[in-house]
């Protein structure tokens, strides 16, 4: 069995973001980078399937050279090899273009199961996995919080609104997009980090995969307007507590 997991490198969401000079994306300098949180669950699930079945597991990541750092984490978690689709412009590409790159790489490779995160933390479109499946002609199930594989069949739980889950079945080959809480992503151990350095990391130029044309343009990137009227309390915690209690007495009925 052959498995593929697709990951993205994103900035730490606690970062102070600045708008880039082009006005359509954030400034990529001075940021701490990490694996998209949703993708950690995808990698963990793929590694669990590999461990249970002896499957071969490839991790794919699109972006500039720096994404290799994030790929090393996936390799240390247990992926067998990395495929880096080198693309300095990946942050400007829309979800359909990213999906077209994944599909161009995966086509004819015979992957039985493809894992992605359900969305990225920075763009949050939730489109790439499903679109890649469509382009590859595979069935896809989104937002999974439970996963079981028996023979050629996957039985997964989809997370719906209000805590309801749907149990869904599909036959391989298939693609699933992973939601937070699907499993507990492992921390790579030091020996596995060392081993990961020796694993194969293949680079393919994005241009060689003929990405599709963009369907979507970002007109501008802005900071949201603050609601206004919100009061900031700062300083000594005793004083902050007193002022907060005063406000609650004035503005709410909960201390009455």
């Amino acid at each position: 069995m052959k498995l593929l997991v697709c990951i993205k490198q994103v900035p730490d969401m606690e970062s102070k973001f600045k708008i880039d000079t082009d006005g359509v994306w954030y400034d990529r300098g001075d940021l701490a980078w990490r694996m998209n949180e949703y993708d950690e669950y995808a990698v963990e699930q793929a590694v669990q399937v590999k461990e249970a079945t002896g499957a071969d597991l490839t991790v794919l990541c699109i972006g500039p050279d720096q994404v290799k750092e994030t790929m090393k984490k996936a390799l240390a978690m247990g992926c067998d090899r990395g495929v880096h689709i080198a693309d300095d412009q990946s942050h400007r590409r829309d979800p359909f273009q990213i999906a077209s790159l994944i599909a161009a790489f995966a086509r004819d490779k015979g992957f039985d199961l493809i894992f992605t995160g359900m969305q990225s933390q920075d763009r949050g479109s939730g489109q790439v996995g499903v679109m890649a499946a469509e382009l590859l002609g595979l069935p896809a199930v989104t937002t999974i919080v439970g996963f079981a594989l028996a023979g050629n069949t996957i039985t997964v739980k989809r997370e719906l609104e209000g805590g309801v889950k749907a149990t869904v079945e599909a036959t391989l080959p298939a693609l699933v997009t992973c939601q937070l809480g699907l499993n507990t992503p492992r921390y790579p151990t030091l020996p596995n980090i060392m081993k990961a350095k020796k694993k194969e990391l293949l680079t393919v130029a994005a241009a060689d995969l003929s990405p599709a044309d963009a369907l979507l343009n970002t007109v501008k990137l802005t900071f949201p307007e603050k609601k206004g009227g919100g009061v900031f309390l700062e300083g000594d915690v005793g004083e902050v507590a007193d002022r907060l209690i005063r406000i609650l007495k004035e503005k709410t009925s909960v201390l009455a």
């Binding site: 708008i19 933390q121 979507l216 007109v219």
Partner: peptide, 15 residues
């Protein structure tokens, strides 16, 4: 649409 956990907002247009 929101970006980066709603820290930013993108204004977008389809082609």
């Amino acid at each position: 649409v929101p970006a980066c956990n709603a820290k930013l907002r993108r204004t977008v247009a389809g082609n």
